[in-house]
Design a protein around this nucleic acid. Structure first.
Length: 586
RNA sequence: GCGCCCAUAGCUCAGCUGGAUAGAGCGUCGGCCUCCGGAGCCGAAGGUCAGAGGUUCGAAUCCUCUUGGGCGCGCCA
């Protein structure tokens, strides 16, 4: 049961009643109504702005409408107080049974509590990570990976049919560099002294095993041949090895993708999907041969003013038209990416989400333009940009240089601080704000650290479940006696405070899913844990508020029900974030 | 030069797509362990929401400008 939905429903039927009696215009457009928790308990439990929103269209004063609605709603049995306040807020105080009933429904729904039909089962494609397959994942990839994964979880929880996708950039010049670098390691594996790795090739040691693997597979057969003969084979092996490693890195973070989509596959088979896409755009009159102006204020060496094949991105809000072919006639990355999105649309996705790193933010407009053009405006693309992560250790920046091979890998970070803290901290911030990630602080188990704070709440609840067996040996915490507990015994303000927080969960899930903002969940869980810990401490001061009351089985059962529903929401919420809810912290 | 993102308490950040008196954590100061886990709880101090206009019943939130930071700027990916 969603209490906010319940109130909204009652308000709407009250409006209908007023319209039926002619007290409000019959053709009044009902929209934009908010039903939200009050910030101040003095305003009751739930507040709505109905009257203010409808005032103009109804040509009446907000307070007048609110008064009429209030009169109508006072007969509602689940409302114990309906008041009009301020500029025209409708403040509703609910009967305690409404709140207590939340506990019962959480236990009834179990891990389905909070799930939503917002997505109506519609397919949605979330593309994230998509790191170049030229090396192990480094910390820079970490945030986008965790964000995309949590967002995908959240959307699935909110009723979407989610496909998690990784775009493999295996067709450009970078993978050729990878192949050359691997070939060098191959020669090294066969005993040759390769000396310093030349400028422009990847120096990392991670390619040594690739070289050894090539030596095993090909023996000396690739030696002394021209590059054109060995490069495709070496490239394929190297990319394959890199992808294996990337999947392992992702698995360490509990991340998995449904589809790994190869850029090369767009042009590999009988059908050149890039050409098809460009033809389609040409048929729409969106492709032309032309010249671009040299960008101002930015040093572009060797600018060559030449005619090229361009996509009319400016017709869809981009700043300039974008090139589809390079000077050597091959496709630009953007052309391939358009074909890739054309492919997504062809697979039936009308909702697309791409997770980008901050360094790709300049790419947003052209990508949105591409999807708008390809789908004739019928599909939506949301691009979530994850800002940079500053890696610190005890306040000092960790120095990284990709050239010197001293960049910190994702695996190193996960191994050092653990999966749960990494995931939670990456999500405990808006995606478009920069993030300081301090390796020393993240493992401190204190309130500084929201992960442990939230997990601790769950562990404490589990601890009570263990302890209760000593008092009521025949009481099964997970059984029907608790599920059917008399929740009307939950009357203490701090108990109701926790219940109200639990009641917020479904509403929060919908808001976070609609906004594509999983971080809201992390903050919610922190607040929920605070309510829980507060209630717990009340028991330290007032023994009659402890969960286990040896002399009162009914009260104990009711409180166990509350604990169980809280543990359920913590588990569900952390689950969406991909964080484990432990039964003990020791 | 242009585009995008950011600016909220001493510090790190929320603020539920425009709601009522702007909230947490850390830090500072003061309290709470004979019993369900003190990795916790309770309280106090701390604000020109960068600045100036505008939109309206109502703005930290939306629009314009200014200031100060970050990222990016034909054929790289």
């Amino acid at each position: 049961m969603n209490v906010f939905a319940h109130v909204e429903e009652r308000i709407k039927s009250a409006l209908a009643a007023l319209q039926a009696r002619g007290e409000l215009p019959a053709d009044l457009a009902i929209g934009g109504i908010d039903v939200e928790p009050t910030r101040d308990p003095a305003h009751g439990d739930v507040a709505s702005n109905v009257a203010m929103v409808l005032a103009k269209a109804a040509r009446a004063k907000p307070r007048e409408i609110a008064d009429k609605l209030a009169a109508e709603l006072r007969s509602e049995a689940t409302f114990i107080k309906v008041a009009v306040a301020g500029p025209g807020f409708l403040n509703v105080t609910l009967a305690p049974s409404m709140w207590q009933g939340v506990v019962t429904s959480i236990l009834k729904e179990g891990d389905a509590y909070g799930r939503s039909t917002l997505g109506r089962g519609e397919p949605i494609n979330v593309e994230y990570v998509s790191a170049n397959p030229t090396g192990p994942m480094h910390v820079g990839h970490c945030r986008g990976a965790v964000f995309g994964d949590a967002l995908a979880n959240l959307l699935a929880f909110a009723g979407y049919d989610v496909t998690r996708e990784y775009y493999i950039n295996d067709a450009g010049a970078q993978v050729d560099v990878l192949a050359r670098s691997a070939y060098l390691r191959y020669r090294e594996a066969l005993g040759e002294d390769i000396g310093e790795i030349p400028e422009g090739l990847y120096p990392g040691d991670y390619l040594k095993p690739v070289g050894q693997g090539l030596a095993m597979a090909f023996g000396r057969s690739l030696l002394g041949k021209p590059e054109a003969e060995w490069l495709p084979d070496v490239r394929q092996v190297a990319i394959g090895d890199m992808l294996v490693q990337i999947r392992e890195d992702l698995a360490a973070l509990n991340i998995r993708h449904d589809v790994f989509f190869s850029e090369r596959s767009l042009t590999n088979g009988n059908r050149d999907e890039v050409a098809v896409t460009i033809d389609e755009l040409r048929a729409k009159g969106l492709v032309y041969e032309g010249r671009l102006e040299k960008p101002k204020g930015h040093d572009v060496d060797e600018w060559e003013d030449r005619e090229q094949t361009l996509f009319k991105a400016t017709e869809f809000g981009d700043d300039v038209d974008r090139a589809l072919l390079k000077s050597d006639g091959s496709y630009t990355y953007f052309a391939s990416d358009m074909a890739y999105h054309h492919n997504k649309l062809a697979r039936g996705f009308k909702h697309l989400i791409n997770v980008f790193g901050a360094d790709h933010s300049g790419y947003i407009k052209r990508m949105k333009a591409a999807v708008a053009a390809l789908s004739d405006g019928k599909a939506d693309l949301d691009i979530k940009v994850c800002q940079l992560v500053r890696l610190l250790r005890a306040g000092e920046p960790v120095k990284m240089s990709k050239r010197a091979g001293t960049f910190v890998t994702l695996r190193e970070v996960v191994d050092e601080v653990g999966r749960d803290p990494v995931r939670f901290m990456m999500l405990y911030r808006k995606n478009d704000a920069t993030l300081d990630f301090d390796l020393a602080k993240v493992i401190e188990q204190s309130k500084d650290n929201a992960v442990f704070y939230v997990q601790y709440a769950h562990a404490r609840a589990q601890s009570v479940f263990r302890n209760v067996r000593e008092t009521f040996s025949d009481l099964d915490v997970m059984g029907v006696e608790v599920a059917a507990a008399d929740v009307s015994m939950l009357t203490d303000p701090s108990e109701l405070d926790l219940v109200k927080r639990l009641a917020l969960f479904p509403r929060l899930v919908e808001g976070a899913a609609a906004a594509h903002e999983p971080h809201r969940l992390a903050f919610y869980l922190n607040d929920l844990a605070a309510s829980f810990h507060s209630l717990w401490s009340r028991g330290n001061e007032s023994p009659h508020l402890r969960f286990i009351q040896p002399s009162d089985r009914k009260v104990t059962t009711a409180r166990l029900a509350l604990m169980r529903s809280c543990a359920q929401v913590v588990t569900s919420g952390l689950g969406i974030l991909g964080v484990h809810a432990p039964s003990e912290m020791r």
